[in-house]
Computed example of a mutant assay.
Amino acid sequence: MKFIKSAQYDKQFLLDNMMGPNALKILEELTVGLDLHPGMKVLDLGCGKGLTSIFLAKEFGVQVYATDLWITATENYERFKSLGLDELITPIHADATELPYAENYFDAVISVDSYHYFGHTPEFMDAKLAPYVKPGGFIALAVPGFKEEYHSNLPPEFLISWGAADLDTFHCCDWWQTLLSHASTIKVDSVAELTCMDEAWQDWLACDEEHAINDRGSMNAGAGKYMNLIAIKATKI
């Protein structure tokens, strides 16, 4: 697809604030077909430096709760304020396993490049995330993953940049489908590959951030042919 919305954002601003493959392109593809509109309360879970929160506020006019554990609320607030978005985005510093919200509060949850860190256990969805979504609300997740399950025989390209433990939470579409099918509080609508993987990764590798520099070894050696970006969409029952 053509990333018309993402292309409007300042390239240097994106490079300065990326924490992984280009989250705006991932989010632009993830939100195709989603009913996001002004007045909705949206949890952006694992928002990092807030690029996805900025996109959600600017492109859809929703009220965003930008929640992250690694980046402080103050740092993100200053970024949102500098863009004139502080009235649409509320920064929250919180652990995804201990969210400080009321149950049935959100119309939607969006999570880009973070759910795999904390949501890879069978109980997480029912116990830790779905309770905060209104019945009929939706959950849209984008996670990095594999084309197939390679953990028992990792391709050598991976080991140039990463150890086996770094890839523990990377899985294939079928694995995620099976995991989330056990959740009793959601209906899984789709689990599918995103088309933006190559573009999103190339944007990330162009950053001078230390993790991007480290990732270049494996990706330049061809690790990308085994990898995936996965979109998961579900509805709260």
Rank of each mutant, 00 (worst) to 15 (best):
Y226M: 01
D166C: 14
A94R: 06
G50E: 02
L56V: 10
L141P: 11
M125Y: 10
L69S: 10
C207E: 08
P100I: 10
Q202V: 05
A200L: 02
D174Q: 15
P38R: 08
A140Q: 06
E123G: 12
Q202D: 12
I139R: 00
S184A: 15
P135L: 11
E209C: 05
D198I: 11
S114H: 09
L179C: 11
E28M: 04
F60Q: 12
F146R: 11
D203G: 09
F138Q: 06
W175E: 03
D68P: 08
D95G: 12
F60L: 02
Q12Y: 04
G46E: 04
Q63C: 12
F60C: 00
M197R: 09
K58E: 15
S181V: 03
E75C: 11
A206Q: 10
L154Y: 14
L154V: 14
Y115N: 03
P91N: 14
D168A: 15
K58V: 09
M197N: 02
D198H: 08
A165E: 11
L30K: 01
F138K: 13
D35I: 11
G20P: 10
K147F: 01
A66P: 05
K25G: 00
V188I: 14
T90E: 13
E123F: 10
N104M: 03
R216N: 02
I71F: 08
A96W: 03
E87Q: 13
A165M: 07
F13G: 05
T31P: 08
I110G: 04
F60V: 02
E210A: 11
I89D: 04
V62R: 00
E149R: 13
E157R: 08
T52C: 13
T90S: 12
Q63S: 14
F118Y: 14
V32L: 00
A127W: 05
T31V: 05
K236C: 01
A164N: 03
A140P: 14
M1G: 13
S218H: 03
S190F: 15
G137Y: 07
G224R: 03
D168P: 06
I92Q: 01
P91W: 15
P155R: 15
F124Q: 06
D68C: 12
E193T: 05
M18V: 03
G119E: 07
L30R: 10
F170A: 03
G119R: 07
C173W: 00
